[in-house]
Nucleic acid binder design. Structure first.
Lengths: 345, 345
DNA sequence: GACGATTGTGAGAGCGCTCTCGCAACCGCC
DNA sequence: GGCGGTTGCGAGAGCGCTCTCACAATCGTC
């Protein structure tokens, strides 16, 4: 029933406005170099017919798609357990929309998908890609790089290959970690432990480095490796309590880890923050505010991170087509963090 | 430097294989009606040249895009605070990928965006749309419907317009709510309260209805309206404690609400579940498992919901082009829920 | 009023693909 | 060996757009 009426073409608009296709095209694309009277006549015809340009036809000749792929490698479900991902997407989406670009979402699920993604990118369906590379050994960045598609990474790619020319947006994990630990020393704590994240991710490594920056000659037994999950936090906290019963503060690699640690501490009868102060990382709201006591943590502006990734990519895309000698290539950006004080430290 | 080599065309492949464009096209699209020998020769040429079809050119003639828009209306940030969204996306993504369709993500942000989305859909960039319609008064479903794009909704659209032919996937909110409340009555509770969600959403309404199904002539003072947030849950719980100090169970519209209620109950010195049993809805893991005590809740298979939405849409898309008399139109699906027993009830 | 310079417009080619159509080549049959 | 009936392949049109290029109209200038 809903027989879709054939969409009007440039031709149709031209006929109605009494001009040529070329003129309509010019008007639709900004109207430069067309006399005001004609512009109006064309605009009117466009409105009356409800003309919308056919993107496929346009792409065919311009080789531009005004579309960007967002690639989320998701070997674990962790990505989905926190709102991180959604917030970044929102930032990206806002920025892309503001520049009339579409967001094509590619979720990858293990090795098989890599080939698929590579093929898709090579297929030239999109003008560029935003990639969240989570793991040190992830082959995806390499594949993408070799597909020759302009790319911006989310988070410093811990990648052994060529890194010149790699553009990424990251938060200042190391600096944020330093702030957290300094806050703890400022509270007079001396036996400050760190529960690290999964160390195959640069964010975990950087946070550990930040901890070490402050605790220059920390007792190595004060460092336990978690995996960014509450369960990992619990496990690590138990180890720590056993190894170093005198621990008086914990800097956890993220909020979920901290939540796990808090639970173990409560079970062990340690009061937080009186006996042991705890700081998390991320300021992941549904968690950080729900813990008991509410979690002091390092906040990062995730949405801004997404927005920035998109902005850098779009800038690069604008730069490319015009083979102007040396428009400066965008370089990576590291966003600041802020310490959010709540009850736990 | 990375001068992108011009991508090979059908023409190039044809020349290399010593056949015509048409034959290459046939092979690329399945190879029917081409002799085995030629198929092989063409395949070889395709591989050697690394040929990938130009989607824009193909779409131009086929009017198919093999792309589906996912539209998330997001007037509130709530959507992003829970993993809901991400899980549905994952389900959708899996299904679409399996059928070689792309996922174009459209996040909308208030009224202005509606026009943008409508225009985009009308522009025929995608073959269909998956829409999450959250609010009763949302004009989006109407706009989309009138754009004539095949659509499947996530969650029953609470929509006053024409509903015949509307296809949606929902979870059995009402049934799940009934199960939860029956579980509470089974525990011998009699003063069972309900903290409703934002009642401009069908899920909240349905859960309330489910509660009423069991508590046929419940004391109306046992019903408080929340808004799906922890803060709303706290507020509602305080009201309830004041109005009905004898409350011995609470069924909350979702886990976040339940988390808020739990906190207020603890403050008020009520033991959970001994004095007051609490049940949530969603089984939103980072929350439900972290509360103290761990939350008994109603689980829904979010990912499956996404997958199903995609499947229904793809089926509809397959149905349409071939104007076969009456391939049965897909109809809506309601997914079952399961009660997950933890410590709180 | 005739001149080049400027600006506005249209004709037409072509982007890379699909798909219809007609022609060969081949089949089995009388 | 001549006949209709398949089957396999290529020629060519055309999808809706952009963009170059040539031409027409307008301008200021001497």
């Amino acid at each position: 029933m809903t027989e879709t009426a054939p969409r009007p073409t440039l031709e149709a608009v031209a006929a109605r406005a009494g001009v040529s296709r070329a003129t309509v095209s010019r008007v639709v694309n900004g109207g430069d170099g067309v006399r005001e009277r004609l512009v109006e006549r064309v605009r009117k015809a466009v409105d009356e017919l409800g003309y919308v340009p056919n993107q496929a036809a346009r792409s065919l000749v311009t080789r531009r798609h005004d579309a960007v792929a967002v690639i989320v490698a998701e070997p674990e479900t962790r990505v989905f357990a926190d709102p991180f991902f959604a917030l970044q997407l929102r930032g990206i989406s806002k920025e892309l929309t503001a520049h009339d670009n579409q967001l094509v979402l590619l979720l990858t699920e293990g090795r098989d998908d890599h080939a698929r993604v590579a093929r898709y990118l090579a297929g030239g369906h999109v003008d560029g890609a935003l990639v969240f590379s989570l793991h040190l050994d992830d082959p995806l960045p390499g594949l993408i790089q070799s597909a020759g598609v302009p790319t911006v990474f989310g988070g410093r790619p811990g990648w052994s290959g060529e890194t010149r020319g790699v553009v990424y947006v990251d938060v200042d994990n190391r600096g944020g970690a330093r702030d957290a630990v300094r806050h703890l020393t400022g509270l007079g704590r001396t036996r400050i432990a760190h529960i690290a994240g999964a160390l195959d991710q640069t964010s975990a490594v950087d946070r550990l480095d930040g901890y070490r920056d402050v605790m220059v000659d920390a007792d190595p037994r004060l460092i336990a490796e978690g995996d960014f999950t509450p369960a990992g936090g619990e496990r690590a906290m138990r180890e720590l309590l056993e190894r170093c019963p005198d621990v008086d503060a914990v800097f956890a690699a993220n909020d979920l880890t901290a939540a796990g640690a808090l639970r173990v501490l409560r079970e062990a009868g340690r009061r937080v923050p009186d006996d042991v102060a705890v700081i998390g990382f991320d300021d992941m709201l549904p968690v950080a505010e729900q813990t008991d006591p509410a979690l002091t943590t390092v906040r990062q502006d995730i949405e801004e991170m997404g927005r920035l990734m998109a902005r850098l990519l779009l800038r690069e895309l604008d730069r490319r087509p015009s083979d102007e000698p040396v428009a400066p290539a965008p370089s990576s950006v590291v966003l600041p963090t802020t310490l959010v004080r709540r009850a736990s430290a």
